[in-house]
Design a protein around this nucleic acid. Structure first.
Length: 273
DNA sequence: AGTGCGACCCGAACGC
DNA sequence: TGCGTTCGGGTCGCAC
């Protein structure tokens, strides 16, 4: 399940192989995942050189000579770089490259999406336009969070999933950050203190950078793939756990914003939920 | 404006 | 055993 650390890992692995290669042909077998004009997607990438690969939040961006190819892996999206092979099951996009090799995108659940835009439209015509600050950004301060939180009554768990506020945390790291910060996932965001906001920022940075070091988290994966077999799952403190590592109490699981939320009611001061 | 929820997918896990 | 049902995961778009 790619969250920020997984996407960062994929980006770094792909960069080693793909920079300075040209795209010679694009084959799409599941049209619905292309969210900009399909014919342009196929046509405009031909003869474009891959100049750089970047990550914004959980979004991957392939920068080419004239375009930006924006890709979101959602839960199961994976890239493979290999010799030319017959398309495998669940591979929806294949990029044939100038060195005779191919970049293949596989996505069992077909949840991933791609956009192709002219370079100057990246932050205008794609979902990146609305992306909030990353935990690593110096501008992400408790003041910024308090401002974003002040008119909201949603539980903090839901708000940390909202990429327009702070980008990078998904369901897993969200639980980890709140556990480490000793904050109830149910707590309404407009009641959070400056100290709690600072704890969230500090722990988000710590957890994400540690997860990046370990190549991300692999909780459920059907096949091994390029650069996304991380080992941070061994470090998880609360997500998927049954017993609290700190107080030995029972970890509870409840739905918040439709997502399974793991928490220790004692350590995180949950009163009545 | 903020909030809530269905839609998008399909393999795995679960219930009978 | 086999079959049917539910679940999960991030994001968008729509209704209120």
């Amino acid at each position: 399940m790619p969250e920020l650390p997984e996407v960062e890992t994929v980006k770094n692995v792909l960069k080693k192989d793909l920079l300075n290669l040209k795209i010679k042909k694009v084959i799409v077998t599941y049209k619905d995942m292309i969210k900009t004009d399909y014919d342009e997607f196929i046509k405009n990438l031909v003869d474009e050189e891959i100049i750089d690969i970047k990550r914004y939040g959980k979004w991957l961006v392939f920068e080419t000579t004239n375009y930006d190819l924006v890709s979101h892996l959602r839960m199961e999206g994976k890239y493979y770089y290999s010799e030319k092979v017959e398309p495998q099951k669940h591979e929806h996009v294949v990029f044939e490259l100038s060195n005779g090799k191919v970049l293949r995108y596989k996505d069992v659940r077909k949840f991933g999406v791609m956009f192709l835009v002219k370079k100057d439209r990246l932050f205008i015509d794609t979902p990146l336009a609305k992306l909030g600050l990353e935990p690593f950004n110096k501008e992400l301060t408790s003041t910024y969070l308090l401002e974003k939180f002040k008119n909201k009554k949603l539980p903090i768990k839901a708000v940390l999933l909202d990429q327009e506020i702070m980008s990078g945390l998904g369901n897993i790291y969200d639980d980890e950050v709140l556990f480490k910060s000793r904050i109830s996932p149910f707590k309404k965001v407009n009641t959070l203190t400056k100290e709690e906001c600072e704890a969230i920022i500090k722990n988000s940075k710590e957890i994400l950078s540690e997860a990046i070091k370990m190549g991300g988290t692999t909780i459920r994966s059907y096949t091994s793939s390029l650069g996304v077999e991380g080992s941070y799952q061994d470090k998880l403190l609360v997500h998927t756990k049954k017993e609290c590592m700190v107080c030995k109490g029972k970890i509870l699981v409840k739905k918040i914003a439709g997502r399974s939320t793991y928490y220790c009611p004692k350590c995180q001061g949950v009163l009545d939920e």
